[in-house]
Design a protein around this nucleic acid. Structure first.
Lengths: 246, 246
DNA sequence: GGGGTAGCTGTCAAATCTAACAGGGTGTTT
DNA sequence: AAACACCCTGTTAGATTTGACAGCTACCCC
């Protein structure tokens, strides 16, 4: 299958209307590309410590169970890479420190047949992060590398379509609850996230300190939190505010 | 050039260290794909309703000037599409209402030789939006469609690499310089970001309240900030602390 | 006019955080 | 052994935030 034909099959994702259909399409492409397993995970920020996670399964169940039980997502180097980048990565290219938690996760994965692979990060406008991974149970590095290398462009293309399909099926794109915050609330929050105190913000926005507290309080109520810190974490994760404190 | 060779040339973007180099690479790919013009625009949110915009130019200067002067970005249907999607679009497929502002923009663009084209949106972790566009001065719809169709996968691949290159050159987000927060510092910060007070964190981690403040203070020093809020915003944006599930 | 939303301002007490002064301990590396 | 990183704990004073009590204007929609 050349890339042009491949491109045509991608249109099927736009028509898919259920998880099962998407799973089947992924499975098809997985085999087609010469991989053994696949998984797509979508993280949707909700509360700070309560992101919603949607998974399209094509991985060994035992591994997924173990993964969640032990909270491996926190040390998974693939997730760490994907949350910062926009181009795909071959697992072999990840920089791992010996006997780090990250290395442990990857080694255990290998025991479940996930020895080599490739992952494509997808970031969408509201901070959702989708990761499409294809894995290979292949001992020989060179062979694995060749397959991954060859699959790279296909995986990159697939990523976007799987991502849009999953978001559509689960009704993720929801512009309504994107900005529950008023203009002033966003402004105040942004400056607060920038380390400014109420008084400083009042000077910046030419308001009274009381008004700044008023807006920040309203923001906290809307975000259902009771401290500024929580409000900021939540707003940043949801993309409600984008401070630039660098 | 097949897709495999193409893939190899993409590595050049990782080495590019200046705007000029990136521009040249884009120009090369533009011609190679059979297009007449290209442009890459990166929007970095700063304050609410304010953004820093970086442009890699390969469009008629006159058009770009007019575009900015008249604030066309506000009605540009390509930007509207790109801010909501993650897969590329052929301009012909955009839904335009007759005599809308969007249609006006596209018509005027056509007068500058930008009659057909394709645009690839790139969203990165902190809300930056990059748009890579290739344009064609081609009257015949069918011919334009064919070229665009053929270029689609290449453009999608290019997008990520141009995006990462520009972000790197402009120092937009440098995940590399991860300030090493210690384990305790991360834990405390994570709970603080969840709205917990020092006392509550001390109970959660079975520490004294003083110790929690100690760790949070160290984290603030390392992040070079003077409030918890700023520390949390910075840490979340840099991916130094991860929300619980994932 | 009433009701809704958004914005603005005031005071006050209690809770919380920040910054400064201290003092311990462990473990690894040089 | 000394230097270093990480971890733990104490006190205090002052700044800041939080939550509660108030009040006001302006706009839009029904």
């Amino acid at each position: 299958m050349n890339i042009q034909q491949f491109q045509d099959t991608l249109q099927l994702f736009s028509a898919a209307s259920s998880v099962d259909e998407i799973t089947e399409l992924c499975r098809f492409h997985c085999q087609n590309l010469g991989f053994d397993n696949f998984v797509y995970a979508l993280r949707i920020p909700t509360k700070f410590s309560e992101a919603r996670v949607i998974i399209i399964k094509g991985y060994p169940d035992l591994w997924l169970e173990r993964y969640w039980e032990l909270g491996y997502h926190a040390s998974d180097p693939v997730i760490a890479y994907c949350s910062q980048h926009v181009v795909p990565i071959q697992w072999h290219d990840l920089l791992l420190e010996k006997s780090s938690l990250s290395a442990l996760v990857m080694n255990e994965a290998a025991e479940f047949g996930l020895r080599a692979g490739i992952s494509m990060p997808m970031h969408s406008p509201r901070g959702e992060l989708g990761i499409l991974s294809f894995a290979l149970n292949q001992e020989r590095r060179s062979a694995a590398r060749e397959i991954s290398q060859h699959a790279m462009p296909y995986v990159q293309l697939l990523g976007g379509y799987v991502h849009e399909a999953v978001c559509r099926v689960f009704g993720v794109a929801n512009p309504e609850d994107k900005l529950p915050l008023t203009l002033r609330e966003q402004e105040c929050l942004r400056w607060a996230a920038d380390g400014k105190t109420s008084w400083e913000i009042s000077q910046l926005l030419k308001l009274s300190e009381r008004t700044v507290n008023f807006h920040l309080n309203n923001a906290m109520i809307k975000l259902d939190v009771s401290t500024r810190q929580h409000a900021i974490a939540k707003a940043v994760l949801r993309g409600l505010i984008t401070p630039y404190p660098f």
